[in-house]
Design a protein around this nucleic acid. Structure first.
Length: 266
DNA sequence: CAACCGACCTGTTCGC
DNA sequence: TGCGAACAGGTCGGTT
């Protein structure tokens, strides 16, 4: 479900609500939501810590704790993290609750149970292998070109590889390729410098607009607040927003991939 | 080396 | 209306 813009939306919410608060307890109803360490250690080490800051790396939420340690969370397909009043009714799919002083709690909802939380000394243990952060100054067309040309994968496959660019998922990879006019099946190492410049700019613009819109609303009720409206993703059979050609769908890496056969020809 | 497949899970939608 | 199949925003490890 969540890609970079949706994760950023969660981060903004958490930063506002739990920064400076201290943890008083935990409730874990699905043990496998805790990736590391074990459930017991996780709870023991969390109690008494203070939430120092909340940030994001790729699709990981990073909560810095005082006096030490980091709580990371990956929402995977269906996860959501929100702060709620202790008295507020709980959702059906709540997996972990982290209790704070002042009757407020962090709730990890995750219907499909794919999401994970990590309590570590150094976030690099988890996010160390991630690629370029799209909003950092390192995200240049030169850097992207170099990474695309290191391998001969279909360009969309490489965009989904978090070791290349961190934060893109199926929706925004599809959207970026449409904006850049690049066919998803093209080999990454065959892209010219000019096309990589277009791709870099498309990725940056798509993500920036989606963050501003607080993510995408796909109508399942989870990201209802998200106002980003995909131009191509999920529009198979409908006219291209640019040239009216019927949008087609192919499967790349077992993921649905919508594209315009004319704007994104080979 | 790149592509594919099954796991991990549950909920929703679609076709009959 | 009911029921099974297909599919869903992610990632990993093992095969082809």
């Amino acid at each position: 479900m969540p890609e970079l813009p949706e994760v950023q939306t969660v981060v903004n919410h958490l930063a506002e609500c739990i920064t400076g608060r201290s943890i008083t307890g935990t409730e874990i109803s699905w043990a496998r939501s805790i990736a590391v360490p074990g459930v017991t250690l996780f709870s023991q080490q969390l109690v008494g810590k203070v939430c120092r800051a909340v940030s994001r790396r790729g699709k990981y939420i990073v909560i810095a704790l005082a006096p030490h340690g980091y709580l990371l969370c990956h929402l995977r397909m269906s996860g959501d993290l929100k702060v709620a009043d202790a008295a507020a009714p709980r959702s059906k799919h709540e997996r972990v609750r982290i209790l704070f002083e002042g009757e407020c709690e962090l709730r990890f909802d995750d219907p499909r149970k794919f999401g994970k939380m990590y309590l570590v000394a150094d976030p690099e243990e988890i996010v160390g292998t991630l690629g370029i952060e799209p909003f950092s100054r390192n995200f240049t067309s030169e850097a992207l070109y170099e990474r695309l040309h290191q391998r001969a994968l279909r360009v969309k496959t490489l965009l989904l590889d978090q070791r290349c660019v961190a934060g893109l998922g199926n929706i925004y990879a599809v959207e970026s390729l449409w904006h850049a006019g690049i066919n998803p099946l093209v080999r990454s190492n065959k892209l010219s410098k000019e096309r990589v410049v277009k791709l870099r700019n498309a990725i940056y613009e798509v993500l920036r607009k989606a963050v501003d819109a607080r993510g995408t609303d796909l109508g399942d009720g989870v990201w209802k607040s998200g106002g980003y409206s995909p131009k191509t993703y999920g529009r198979e059979g409908q006219p291209c927003r640019r040239c009216k050609t019927v949008i087609r769908r192919v499967i790349v890496n077992q993921r649905s991939t919508d594209f315009c056969p004319k704007c994104q020809s080979r």
